[in-house]
Design a protein around this nucleic acid. Structure first.
Lengths: 194, 194
DNA sequence: ATGATAACCGACCACTCGGTATGTTACAAG
DNA sequence: CTTGTAACATACCGAGTGGTCGGTTATCAT
């Protein structure tokens, strides 16, 4: 990897972390510059402005991260159990600082969907992609599931509840509430089976 | 109502609207001043700083609004049907601009819970209050419900899913996704009955 | 050796923000 | 008639923001 590409990647990594922690609008370019140890010229050489940097972070950091996170759970032989274990283990692994940060996709959706059209479309696309992943996984074990289920609806329901649970834990600063919602979510997911 | 109190109420109303639309941090005092047709001196006569204004908006506008919104649904003879009708009718009533604004409680939680302790505690208190309302309603018809249910857990689950659904619709800019999640949520809620 | 270019530096700009300090006006009490 | 105070208005401040621009350095093809 060239020096320039290394710089670009470092900017992306630091920016992703800052955006995840403080949101896009509250993220200051000067903070990114300080953490990277570079100058403003360097940043504006690689990205034309703040929002283009934001788009790059979303596409090159958040999207792959989200896919890599959900994919394994959904690829298991039994995606129903895969999802339950995924949610439960995520809950167990989390420390308190991660609890408070939430899911980057949900965070950006709450903050930027009404503010910037470019963000909105990227977020929507990612939500649809995630939904399609879940629907595919459910369809794969269709025979084991209750026949009246609407997969798309169920998939959005699961994601909505998951994101809602992360929101809840932000105010309590611990994972107790998160744990309860996830526990109930697993009951619901398992009830999808015949 | 005195002139001074009228001024205060107008500031609160406009601030509540701005915060609901753009979030607390992105809300500019000068915008509030312009919309109210008052000067900065007037605002700082009634509120000591921006965050105290935010607290006042939360306590005097959002909390009563939320309670007035949820209370009727939960006070019905059958709170299960009350909740389902509440969610469904809210979905039908919403126009596209309301879809995009979401629930003030959830918005502030996502934005401010990690940022300011005063907001965090007020939000947490409201969430617990709302949860208690739902738990009480469920306990009232305990005999009709499945015996193994954990009411607190179920209540947090319902609120989490509701808030997650509002987040989803922010990116799609219509209520299709919201409708689907609510539809599935009603299926879940009705399944709580024996 | 030289010119070009990629990669970066850092001073500077216009602007907005929340907040403050001083000034003004209307009214009410003494 | 004076004085005091509630209820504002207005000018101003410092800090921080995203963004620009002229300059610098290292590398590399010719």
């Amino acid at each position: 990897m060239s020096d320039a590409e290394q710089t670009r990647q470092k900017i992306l990594a630091v920016a992703a972390d800052e955006i995840h922690q403080h949101g896009f609008q509250a993220t200051s370019l000067s903070t990114i510059l300080n953490r990277c140890g570079i100058s403003k010229g360097a940043l504006y050489y690689h990205f034309s402005n703040k929002i283009e940097l934001g788009y790059a972070v979303f596409e090159e950091s958040f999207v792959p991260l989200l896919l890599d996170t959900w994919q394994p759970a959904l690829s298991q032989d039994d995606p129903i159990e895969g999802l339950c274990q995924f949610f439960t283990s995520m809950c167990n692994q989390m420390n308190s600082s991660e609890v408070v940060c939430g899911c980057p996709l949900n965070n950006l959706c709450e903050e930027m969907a009404n503010v910037d059209e470019g963000f909105r479309l990227r977020i929507l696309s990612m939500q649809e992609k995630l939904n399609a992943l879940i629907v595919t996984a459910l369809a794969r074990v269709k025979g084991d599931l209750r026949p009246e289920l609407k997969f798309t609806q169920v998939a959005y329901f699961i994601v909505a509840t998951f994101h809602g649970s992360t929101s809840l834990s932000k105010s309590s600063r611990n994972k107790v509430l998160y744990q309860q919602v996830i526990s109930e979510l697993c009951l619901y997911i398992r009830s999808l089976k015949k």
